[in-house]
Design a binder for these strands. Structure first.
Lengths: 135, 135
DNA sequence: CGTTACGCTGACGTTAACGTCAATTCATCT
DNA sequence: AGATGAATTGACGTTAACGTCAGCGTAACG
């Protein structure tokens, strides 16, 4: 159904907006497993699914190492409850981190806005003085 | 008024919770300018003010290089309107970045929560099956 | 058969912000 | 005087996720 053919490295790069180096790097890190036609890489549907998950994981802020472990567990999904729980726990921990990060960010934004307001008033005064002396 | 004495590197480290390496690094990057008593560093009130600003800047997510530029302008605060505007603009740009980052984070959190819910239901099914087969 | 394009494999480079370690100096404590 | 404890400089190490470059093979075009 979902285009089942193998894809070349270039097609992959165009499809996912990554560089060849990135794909080779992910292969070296055992995140994807392209087959070979002679020496050239061929990416299967499975590789594409994994790459999609990798990129999503990155958006979530997971490290590649985290992602590799998650993918490994994802493979034998359901086969081992304990492992699934590990995945679940890892994701929840990450979620907690992200929420904390979000809160810190929100606070920092608020602080920075205050500074900017202070600054704006300072600037207004200077602008006034300048205007006055120019008048 | 605000304790005007010079401080040793150790006092600084204790006061600001940084390592000596950090202070030396900041000096090398020309963010602070401790005097010398023989070969030993002595930090003035000015250094302390700057360090405080540096650490705040880091909380805001500025790079040290950004911070250095901001401090330089801060020094001649008010003396040059154009420079003040530059500072202001830089801070606003950073604010925009942070707000975008915050929004992306919030979205990623939402996505991740959905995944976790999906996962939780999957797990419930497995748990059920296991319970059944155990019964 | 020459060249142009693409792919492959090492292997070293990059960035930020320090950490870590060695060799040395200096002052103080005993 | 010897030992102990801080400080200093210089230099290399670290981490993540690739970027970049050299040197090589090969496949198709004309």
């Amino acid at each position: 159904m979902t285009t089942d053919a193998m894809m070349t490295i270039r097609e992959m790069c165009d499809a996912f907006d990554v560089t060849p180096r990135t794909l080779r790097f992910y292969e070296a890190k055992e995140l994807i497993f392209p087959k070979r036609e002679g020496t050239k890489r061929l990416f299967s549907r499975r590789d594409r699914v994994r790459l999609k998950l990798i990129l999503r994981g990155k958006r979530f802020g997971f490290s590649l190492e985290d992602i590799r472990q998650l993918l490994d567990m994802y493979d034998r999904e359901g086969s081992e409850r304990a492992q699934y729980l590990t995945t679940y726990k890892l994701a929840q921990e990450r979620l907690a981190q992200m929420e904390q990060q979000r809160d810190e960010l929100i606070e920092a934004i608020a602080e920075l806005k205050v500074e900017l307001n202070d600054g704006a008033e300072l600037y207004k005064r200077y602008a006034n003085e300048t205007t006055k002396s120019a008048a």
